[in-house]
């Protein structure tokens, strides 16, 4: 093991409490950011699933002739955004309503006439599923004289998106606050180590060690603490993930954990916090011994 690594390791033994604190601060900082990451990964996956279900539904005027329906269906299918078009007749609409809305089954049974309109259910191609695009399709459909009403249910997607952005901001602020605390604690640890090692550093200076060399172990120490904090944060995220999964039972089994690149990114970020903490304080304190 090189001298630099040995020195870096030594500081853990010299100031175990502060070393633990700085690792913990980095860990919590990354844990907060990591939790956000987990939620966000799974959320966007869920959103992708939901997006596939984004449909434009066009309700037809009563008594629209079958030939018109057939022609219109072909026209709509030819729209560049449209994946497929399904015609739902009045009868089918009623049958579905009875299946889906069990509570109303009896009410529907007593009906003399079918109150439900026929409709086209139009699925959009991937890449055309955002709300503005759906709105454009809906606009064009409204132009057909036999179309009564057009709906596309994406308002809630937009609202969810906004909610997600807010959550992101909150979590990032908390994560950053922890990161700043981590940087500060690393600074304090380094100051203590510098004073504990003052004699050694003075001798290093005396025999002509370069400043870079003297700084080396401190910087490495910061980076190592960062990496440790990163590992701890990943472990915490994993625990949170497993507990959450166990808690919600079987319903959401397609939840995902981080993939390798996410984990590498988290470690890297931890190391960056450590590096920043040590670089910011090492020069200042070393000059004084």
């Amino acid at each position: 093991m090189s001298l630099v690594t040995r020195e870096a390791m030594r500081s853990f033994r010299r100031a175990p409490l502060l070393s633990t604190l700085s690792v913990a601060a980095i860990a919590f900082s990354l844990f907060t950011i990591g939790l956000y990451g987990l939620v966000s990964i799974n959320f966007s996956q869920a959103l992708t699933g939901l997006e596939e279900r984004v449909e434009v539904v066009a309700f037809l005027m009563r008594g629209t002739p079958a030939e018109t329906v057939a022609l219109a269906s072909e026209d709509i299918a030819a729209f560049p955004e449209v994946l497929d078009v399904r015609y739902v007749s009045q009868d089918e609409a009623l049958r579905r309503a009875k299946e889906e809305l069990v509570e109303f089954r009896e009410a529907y049974a007593e009906l003399q006439t079918n109150p439900l309109p026929a409709s086209f259910e139009i699925r959009l191609k991937p890449g055309y599923r955002r709300s503005e695009q759906a709105a454009a399709v809906a606009d064009r459909l409204s132009g057909f004289p036999f179309i009564d009403d057009v709906r596309f249910g994406q308002d809630w997607v937009v609202r969810l998106d906004r909610l997600r952005n807010l959550a992101t901001a909150v979590q990032l602020i908390i994560g950053l606050a922890f990161a700043v605390v981590a940087v500060a604690i690393i600074g304090v640890t380094i100051r203590i180590t510098v004073f504990q090692r003052a004699e050694e550093i003075a001798i290093m200076r005396l025999v002509g060690a370069t400043n870079g060399f003297i700084r080396g172990p401190f910087v490495l120490e910061g980076v190592m603490k960062g990496a440790l904090g990163g590992v701890a944060a990943l472990a915490l995220c994993r625990i949170a993930y497993v507990l959450f999964r166990a808690g919600i039972g079987e319903q959401l089994q397609d939840l995902r954990f981080f993939d390798t690149s996410h984990m590498a990114l988290m470690l890297l970020f931890g190391m960056l916090i450590g590096l920043l903490g040590s670089l910011l304080s090492v020069g200042r304190h070393l000059r004084r011994v």
């Binding site: 004699e199 002509g208 060690a209």
Partner: peptide, 30 residues
């Protein structure tokens, strides 16, 4: 400093290192 050999009244050796390690230290850190 590498061109200077310097000694003091109070020796300034590192207590947790042997004689050889104290000497080696000056080489390692340069």
């Amino acid at each position: 400093r590498r061109k200077l050999g310097i000694v003091f009244q109070d020796f300034r050796l590192l207590e947790n290192r042997t004689a050889a390690e104290n000497v080696a230290f000056a080489l390692e850190v340069t």
